[in-house]
Design a protein around this nucleic acid. Structure first.
Length: 373
RNA sequence: GCGUGAUUGGUGAAGUGGUUAACACGGCGGAUUGUGGUUCCGUUAUGCAAGGGUUCGAUCCCCUUAUCGCGCC
């Protein structure tokens, strides 16, 4: 069965809805933790469930290299392989075009993309067809079209050519797509250019995907540019399909995205910064390694309902991080993911109660005054 | 007691008679947005055991003292 999206409520452009999948129905807007290598780094499925995590991400490029999509298929698909009985979205490898293809001009050709394996340096060639076929085998719930995540800044000429190619790739991927139980999302590119975003959105929608994502954001552009990229594209996306903003996960950006009509977000931020000792709090991000927490025997946040805050102190978590103990990154990952998921829970409630704008204002006010603390 | 070798920041240490005394670790702070990366970036000794001398100039040369090591009575 394909996924299905019900738009249940609007509050301005913000949307409250329900995403129906083969692994349950979940409210949107939602935040999706990233588990590139078939695991959300350091966390078990049980822990993710406890945090009320719905969809998790995995990555086509990475699983292709290791362990290989056939291994996953022989295991009975990604869900069984990783013991996750919730929905899974697989990224296509498009972001790796951005991060790993060193020489864009030479490595990105019409047929596909040349990579050097980050594992052994071996030459690899990934095409839209191959990406989709791998994802079909991985048997995720949502597959992504193979695109190029355009770097920032990019010239108009580059962005135009890349955007057009991404459209051709989307078509090619869709043509070979073959998995009844899987859905396929199209990706809007276009860089920072309004007409290209419009063009990309309209053309992608014409191909009729199960959902649409806005890509090419959070690649180094300033916030205003990012928000404009969303504005330029989102008005051309259909109301009855989910909209997914790729790679965005800073609390303030989630709010800005929701306000513009985004339903799904993913980001490595909560887990990555956790491993480096940072925690989201209502009063802004904190660095647990700071000396001032050495003897702070209070939780990261007093009113947080996460496992970490209910059981551990800043001083202890700090000690673990400073000592390079993996439990430190685990505890902070639990807190950070729960923080973002809780944020989305509150956002959904606010939308349902027609008070999203005031909720957003209150949150931002608190989040950005940390300096006085 | 005599002889001898050392003494550089929180630590391990490089180094030179002449502008700002390597590097590493540690400390302190920052970054991180579809995750190659226990990652990246700042910053951290106005001072080279103490005092005196030689010199235009000494952490580097000489003397004295202190501390530590080694050898011999």
């Amino acid at each position: 069965m394909k996924i299905k999206y019900d738009l249940l409520k609007n509050d301005g452009k913000a949307r409250y809805g329900m995403l129906h999948t083969n692994y349950g129905s979940y409210e949107t807007p939602m935040f999706m933790p990233v588990g590139t290598l078939a695991n959300v780094k350091t966390l078990t499925p049980e822990e993710l469930k406890e945090m009320n995590s719905a969809v998790i991400l995995s990555n086509t490029y990475h699983l292709w290299l290791r362990p290989g999509e056939d291994v996953v298929a022989h295991a009975g698909g990604l869900h069984k392989f990783m013991n996750w009985n919730g929905p899974i979205l697989t990224d296509s490898g498009g972001f790796q075009v951005f991060s790993l293809a060193k020489n864009k001009k030479k490595d990105i050709v019409e047929e596909g993309v040349h990579f050097k394996s980050h594992l052994d340096g071996k030459d690899l060639f990934l095409t839209p067809e191959l990406s989709i076929q791998i994802q079909n085998k991985l048997d995720s719930d949502i597959a992504m079209s193979f695109d190029e995540c355009i770097p920032y800044p990019a010239t108009y000429e580059y962005a135009k050519a890349s955007t057009e190619r991404t459209l051709r790739w989307a078509k090619r991927g869709k043509d070979v797509f073959n998995n009844e139980n899987q859905s396929l999302f199209g990706i809007v590119q276009g860089g920072k250019y309004e007409d290209l975003r419009k063009f990309s959105a309209e053309e992608t929608v014409k191909m009729d995907f199960d959902g649409y994502s806005i890509g090419g954001t959070s690649v180094g552009e300033d916030k205003d540019t990012m928000y404009k990229m969303i504005d330029y594209a989102i008005k051309y996306l259909p109301e009855d399909k989910p909209r997914y903003l790729m790679g965005v996960g800073e609390p303030l950006d989630l709010l800005e995205g929701v306000e513009r009509g985004i339903d799904m977000f993913d980001c490595v931020l909560p887990t990555r910064i956790a491993r480096h000792g940072n925690a989201f709090t209502r009063c802004g991000k904190i660095n647990i390694k700071n000396a001032k927490y050495k003897e702070d025997f209070t939780p990261i946040e007093d009113n947080c309902d996460c496992y970490t805050c209910k059981n551990y102190t800043k001083a202890y978590v700090r000690h673990l991080i400073v000592s390079n103990e993996s439990l430190g990154g685990r505890l902070l990952s639990i807190h950070n993911i729960r923080f973002l998921i809780k944020l989305m829970e509150e956002i959904r409630l606010a939308i349902k109660e027609d008070r999203f704008v005031s909720y957003k204002k209150d949150f931002i006010e608190k989040y950005t005054i940390k300096k006085t603390n």
